[in-house]
Design a protein around this nucleic acid. Structure first.
Lengths: 194, 194, 194, 194
DNA sequence: TATGAATGAGTGTTCATTCAT
DNA sequence: TATGAATGAACACTCATTCAT
């Protein structure tokens, strides 16, 4: 199976580096191939076309992203603490992979509407995790019972995303992970009961 | 002065329509020229290049956006109510101009990093308005004294932006303006003292 | 109108030369543009795509081909003599334009089935001229009344075409026009009454 | 010897099918390999390159074509009847193998000039058979003594070829074999003495 | 000012062929 | 013999920008 071949991930890792260093619009397939150490044609043994590289990149990276976060929060009972762990992990994972941060926050957003639609499909998995935390919080009484789940999710994701983007645009000059606590406090106040 | 010629705004309005209807990547200069009723070359008498059209578009639209919001909130004394008015106006103004909503929330984001950097310059004016409200709230005691102004601003802008984007991506099917109140409540809880 | 611009014919003439000298498969658009003395992009102001150049080439050349032949035969009353003039003109016109002979007899035949289908549409005009001569000959009693028009047309066109192709493949070493008389005799014997 | 291995003909038969069904330009080596039930690389154990497959295909098919026709006409003494048998067999053999008819009349003609030159080498064997019949006819007094052998051959082959091509392009809708008699009559009138 | 014809740089993808196994 | 993963050369077309009128 193509997806399990080492070349598959090799090409995706190369794409992350090339896009981060050259920008989305200058990330030619030939550059990615050279970075991956394979011939141009080899790319097409593993990916349908260029767009497929980018979607797969997002799927793989976001997939493991969600997986890691879910593993971290599954043992936690409090919704508030789950939310804290989610924010913390989100910040930590992107802090640990500067290239990936640039690619997801800045570069991949310049892709065409069609590509972003497919990326959003992947993102929905993440949003569902957020919504589940909110629902659990409401049920447990931690969060207000009249909380609009979609709006709360938009606040949580919007705040996290805006915080990371600002950090990336400031060239990652300050400690993003350190913001997990105050950001969590902001968010939890919006959601908390009483 | 170029900027005062009627053609200047004529071209910008044409750009909004062409981008909204065709998408960023299919918004050729020639299409904008035709929509504006001028020759291709004429565009370059008023704008340095294509990027300049887009930056100018954002400057003009965001400028009047900020102006309108500032006018609305200048008579209000409470920071919380100012924030409410800001959210409300933000939602109302974009609800009233569907083309502009598509262009600012979806299409312009596909522009290159360089262009987005310049767009962010324009955005800073808006962010300053938000930060000023936060500062006023802290000073008046409405908001917690230990509130991190930048984080609060990121929460407010991130939440508003994510809410509008979700609405646009859902093809503007529901009433955005009606969300002003619950969104405001979410934000104000995050910021409020006690 | 594009078709009347001097550039239109200029590009077609360039295409004939480039295809004749380089062969169909090595006739890149950029080579045609250079030969025509215009930029690559200019080609696309006058032709929809590369195929359109070739179809237009055939239309223009075959169109004037048919026109010239029709003009020559319109004053002639005898079907046999009309046929003679057709063969003679056909041979003379291709003898006079070696490049065109190569292009129509050898190079254009390597085009895709789709392109050849469109080329055949143009050819039909020529075949109709042949069939009309046959019909006139039958009506006047010059040709046998039981002559199958389609078969006779296939013999006439097949013989002419094969004769020209053989001549082109022999690098145009002998006098093609001199074959008009004996070829005509062969054909006319096949068709004649008695 | 490669040519005697069953795989040799297996690959040629696969090529006929793949070209007939997909067209010359979509007949990739990998498709032919799959159709033949061998690996891509195996092709190159039996053929020098792709062109060699096509030339061999033509050699094999045309070789047996000529063989069959020669066997049919060798017992016949009259040149006219030999010609009749040649036309009849030609039409019958192609009527019986629709795939081959498409490949030889339409698809193989899209090959490069170089390939067609090599194909013509093979064709010469067929043309020699035709010329021999003509020469026999002249010697026996059946055909005119002033008949130009090459022209007569061009008429005969051109007419047959054009008739078959028209039939193939009309999707083989009518009975080709039934045309043998009238076609023969057309040709024989052109050649006959008196 | 205004025009619009002309420019030319830039790139994703296919597929015949090779070669290590 | 047989395999099939890997190779890499080759090219049509778009569109932002210019400049002679």
């Amino acid at each position: 199976m193509k997806r399990n071949s080492p070349k598959f991930m090799q090409i995706i890792e190369a794409a992350v580096i090339v896009i981060a260093e050259n920008g989305y619009h200058h990330a030619q397939v030939s550059k990615i191939a050279k970075q991956a150490g394979v011939a141009d044609g080899t790319i097409y043994l593993y990916f349908k076309n260029k767009e497929d590289i980018l979607v797969s990149l997002f799927q793989e990276k976001m997939g493991s992203f969600i997986e890691k976060i879910q593993k971290e929060i599954e043992g936690i009972s409090s919704a508030s603490e789950k939310l804290y762990m989610l924010v913390k992990k989100h910040f930590e994972l992107l802090s640990a992979d500067h290239h990936l941060a640039i690619v997801t926050q800045l570069e991949l957003r310049q892709s065409s509407k069609e590509l972003r639609t497919r990326i959003n499909e992947v993102l929905k998995g993440y949003l569902r995790v957020v919504e589940q935390i909110i629902n659990e919080g409401i049920e447990s009484g931690e969060f207000r019972s009249d909380l609009d789940v979609r709006l709360a999710r938009q606040m949580i994701f919007g705040t996290i995303d805006e915080t990371v983007t600002t950090w990336v645009m400031n060239e990652q000059k300050y400690d993003l992970a350190a913001l997990a606590k105050p950001v969590h406090e902001l968010l939890i106040r919006g959601c908390s009961a009483s």
